[in-house]
């Protein structure tokens, strides 16, 4: 069992709502990115971090993550220096890390197998590949498992019940439920049926259910608390990093922790 799995299980046992932030690696720059992760860890404001490998053509992402990705690429972010930064962070933090990468950056350079091995060696616990739906490639799924990485799959509002069950059997250590139709990014309001849908997904899923895409305010988080195992916030958090300092994102993280009864 890796440290992410232990963390997810522990949260479940303690009946705590898990909290994760998604950050584009190297945005606004590699130092601010690393500093922010360290601060989140130091103040226990997150249970794990989702680290996005920037890609030039992120199909599942809205404007905020498109921009942060473009910015990070412009500054030279690549798998190599992302692994390097995470390796350093992992030396003095206990925060589990999940890598989110589209297929093309993940398979290029040294190739998929070596890249995944480097990811595991540098301290990542699991990967999320948004353009690899469950079942599309048995070969890639096998390659992810080789270095002992977890593989988190997504399920969406369009996913039929039977498929949700199947996806959850592959997904480890949690299932990522996409809140609504559409790409990542803040939504003024979440679908009124989201809570009840989440409860159904939780019944279908063999693993804890974490929800993301569009959750952007403490009030929205509080509303969903009873219906999910954990929440993932991306764009709203990244937006606060525009200031190029960890102060604003930390303040936001505190408000989320409060709204979920975590502090």
């Amino acid at each position: 069992m890796n440290e992410l799995e232990r963390k997810i299980n522990w949260l479940k046992e303690e009946k705590l709502t898990g909290i994760s932030f998604f950050m584009t690696a190297g945005y606004p720059d590699m130092k601010t990115f690393s500093d922010t992760v360290r601060e989140l860890d130091r103040r226990s404001l997150a249970d794990f971090i989702e680290v996005g490998v920037p890609f030039s053509d992120p199909l599942a992402d809205g404007p905020v993550i498109q921009n942060s990705s473009r910015e990070a690429i412009k500054q030279g972010a690549s798998l190599g220096n992302i692994f390097e930064a995470v390796r350093k962070i992992k030396k003095d933090t206990a925060l589990p890390m999940v890598m989110m990468s589209y297929l093309n950056p993940l398979t290029s350079g040294a190739g998929l197998e070596k890249n995944l091995k480097c990811a595991a060696d540098s301290g990542f616990s699991a990967v999320i590949i948004p353009d690899l739906p469950a079942g599309e490639s048995a070969e890639i799924e096998k390659t992810v498992k080789k270095p002992g990485l977890g593989h988190v799959f997504l399920a969406a509002p369009s996913t039929p019940d039977e498929r949700i069950r199947e996806i959850s059997l592959k997904s480890s250590p949690f299932l990522y439920y996409v809140s609504s139709y559409g790409v990542t990014g803040a939504r003024r309001s979440l679908d009124s049926k989201l809570a009840s849908r989440l409860e159904r997904v939780r019944k279908l899923s063999r693993v804890p259910v974490y929800c993301g895409f569009g959750i952007s305010t403490p009030a929205q988080a509080a509303l969903l608390k009873k219906s999910l195992d954990g929440i993932i916030i991306g764009s709203a958090f990244i937006d606060k990093l525009k200031t190029r300092h960890f102060k604003a994102p930390l303040k936001f993280a505190i408000s989320i922790n409060k709204s979920l009864g975590r502090m």
Partner: peptide, 12 residues
């Protein structure tokens, strides 16, 4: 070939 798309599009 294949269908390397976000999960939301699999059912459609």
């Amino acid at each position: 070939g294949g269908s390397f798309v976000p999960e939301t599009l699999i059912e459609p």
